[in-house]
């Protein structure tokens, strides 16, 4: 499901089947690393779209949670925890990001952080981008399938 009125209608009718929420975490920087943050955003957007496409009926893809890179990581962690608490009714909540700063805080996510290194897609043609993002997405597919099988 995507965050659109049409998909929310479907969600309301089939709540018991959609037990997983995916929140993309995207950094925004203006001074240093503006281009890098844009590149990460581009990558995560395509990757999450591929994941949503595959698992439309079980995953709810949230709008990207954007934050300033300059904001202190503790404050950002608070923001993430707020989201986590609010979305609590879902069985699985996952955060997906390319921002390596989160990696250091992985224990606090308790297994709900998916970190994918960003690929600078701007150097590649459309066909190659599709293949590369598809390959990365497949890794995440397996992760979800495994998690669901455990439950």
């Amino acid at each position: 499901m995507r965050w659109t009125p049409k998909d929310i209608d479907t969600f309301d009718k089939a709540r018991e089947y959609i037990d997983t929420v995916l929140v993309p975490l995207v950094p925004v920087a203006f001074e240093n690393g503006m281009k890098q943050s844009a590149s990460m955003y581009d990558f995560i957007t395509l990757l999450t779209a591929a994941i949503e496409h595959q698992f439309k009926g079980r995953i709810m893809l949230m709008p990207s949670l954007a934050y300033l890179s300059s904001v202190d990581i503790d404050k950002r962690m608070e923001l993430v925890n707020d989201w986590k608490n609010e979305i609590g009714s879902f069985q699985n909540i996952y955060f997906i990001t390319s921002d390596s700063e989160w990696k250091a805080r992985e224990p606090e996510f308790a297994g709900t952080l998916i970190w994918m290194p960003s690929i600078p897609l701007e150097h590649f043609g459309e066909e190659q981008v599709r293949t590369m993002v598809g390959d990365q997405a497949r890794q995440v597919f397996d992760l979800f399938k495994r998690k669901w099988n455990e439950a």
């Binding site: 479907t10 089939a14 089947y17 496409h53 595959q54 698992f55 439309k56 009926g57 079980r58 597919f141």
Partner: peptide, 26 residues
């Protein structure tokens, strides 16, 4: 596109039910 909730189905990926289309979501 799965007629249940729109996931993408795969061919022959469920080991206990070979030669069927299988939806990984439900």
């Amino acid at each position: 596109v799965c007629k249940h909730l729109g996931c993408t189905v795969d061919w022959n990926t469920d080991k206990s039910n070979p030669n069927q289309f299988f939806c990984p979501c439900h």
